[in-house]
Amino acid sequence: MGYWLHRNIIEPGKLPLLLALTAFVLTFVIARVITRMIRAGKGPFRNIDSGGVHIHHVVPGVLLMVAGGFGAVASGREGVGPALCAVLFGVGVGLVLDEFALILHLHDVYWTEQGRKSVEMVVMTAALVSLVLCGFLPFGVNDVGRQELADRGSVILSVGLNFLFALLALSKGKARIALFGVIVPFIAVIGAIRLARPHSPWARHFYRRRPRARARSQLRAFHHDRRWAGLSRKVQDWIGGAPDGPTGASVHTADRR
């Protein structure tokens, strides 16, 4: 284990990234445990208020991100500075993305259906950073050999094609595939060659006069959502807690911190 850590993490200079990712995941988990305990009325934790203003944990998260980011720029690459700044930055990102939906909607939607976006963002961020930590680089240029890397044309072509496929997947309403396609070589091809989602820019433009393609797109989207939406919601509820019902009778969103 020690050899693997030194060979794959410390020697390539990825220790700060590993520390940031670990701090990010642990912070999110701890924040969710605390907020779920407050929601259930258990434990010693209570909401934080200052002068009648409810303090969301995105506030200290932003401060920690600023401190960790500027500290990393100022500390260079030697000593314990980069590692400490990476931990501060990871903790800050964990607090901020835990309330990503609040920032997006500019409203406290933590325990609502819209609040699921926070869990989605945290899971996707952790997955993408993990891929980078494992050696995957944006646009997949890490998979070319030394001789091929010397040929700049091959690298430019690889980056260009991957970027094009990612854009096509994004225009077809497949944002997750497009995002992961930037990291994993040519995974965006899957989203680029398949039918577009019904309300995507591609479908609105190219399926407008093609009723058969439009019908196939709607049918495929229906079957896909029926197959995976329920499972996705169960996983999100397990990670972040189930949102309030339509009436919100279980607990006020303001009483969660």
Score class of each variant (00 low, 15 high):
64 L>K: 10
172 K>W: 02
215 A>F: 03
35 T>Q: 03
62 V>C: 10
241 G>W: 05
20 A>R: 03
214 R>I: 05
95 L>Q: 08
57 H>K: 03
199 H>Q: 04
256 R>I: 03
135 G>F: 03
211 P>H: 12
126 A>F: 01
55 I>D: 00
51 G>A: 07
75 S>Y: 15
106 L>K: 13
40 A>C: 08
70 F>G: 08
166 A>T: 12
140 G>H: 01
5 L>R: 01
136 F>D: 14
67 A>W: 11
155 V>C: 12
124 M>V: 15
29 V>I: 14
231 L>M: 11
215 A>K: 01
37 M>H: 14
105 H>I: 09
167 L>V: 15
152 R>G: 14
53 V>K: 06
156 I>R: 02
168 L>N: 13
220 R>S: 04
168 L>H: 14
10 I>A: 00
150 A>K: 13
213 A>I: 01
60 P>N: 01
202 W>Q: 05
198 P>N: 05
95 L>Y: 11
54 H>A: 08
251 V>A: 10
29 V>D: 05
140 G>S: 08
19 L>P: 14
190 I>D: 09
102 L>P: 06
158 S>E: 14
57 H>D: 08
80 V>Y: 14
50 S>G: 10
141 V>I: 15
64 L>Y: 11
71 G>Y: 01
77 R>F: 00
226 R>G: 05
93 V>W: 02
197 R>D: 02
19 L>Q: 10
51 G>K: 07
81 G>E: 04
169 A>L: 12
123 V>Y: 00
6 H>L: 09
13 G>M: 04
197 R>G: 01
45 F>D: 00
175 A>F: 06
177 I>S: 03
147 Q>S: 10
169 A>S: 15
248 G>W: 06
245 G>T: 13
53 V>Q: 07
114 Q>P: 09
97 L>C: 02
105 H>S: 13
11 E>W: 00
29 V>A: 03
105 H>A: 13
68 G>C: 06
68 G>L: 05
25 V>S: 03
81 G>D: 02
112 T>S: 05
159 V>I: 15
144 V>R: 14
208 R>Y: 03
203 A>K: 06
155 V>H: 12
157 L>R: 07
236 Q>V: 07
142 N>R: 12
201 P>M: 03
183 I>W: 05
47 N>Q: 15
132 V>D: 10
246 P>A: 11
154 S>M: 11
115 G>E: 05
174 K>N: 07
67 A>N: 15
133 L>A: 12
101 A>Q: 13
196 A>F: 12
163 F>W: 09
48 I>Q: 04
16 P>T: 00
163 F>N: 09
195 L>I: 07
98 D>E: 09
220 R>C: 04
154 S>A: 12
203 A>S: 11
232 S>F: 06
189 V>I: 13
49 D>R: 08
144 V>F: 15
58 V>H: 14
147 Q>D: 13
149 L>I: 04
239 I>S: 01
150 A>R: 11
216 R>L: 06
257 R>M: 02
188 A>V: 05
177 I>N: 04
163 F>T: 12
146 R>T: 13
48 I>Y: 10
52 G>L: 09
36 R>E: 06
91 V>L: 14
56 H>A: 11
27 T>Q: 08
31 A>W: 06
65 M>D: 02
100 F>V: 10
39 R>G: 01
134 C>K: 05
105 H>P: 05
58 V>Y: 15
160 G>Q: 07
172 K>H: 07
208 R>L: 02
41 G>Q: 04
183 I>N: 04
184 V>Q: 11
48 I>A: 14
135 G>K: 00
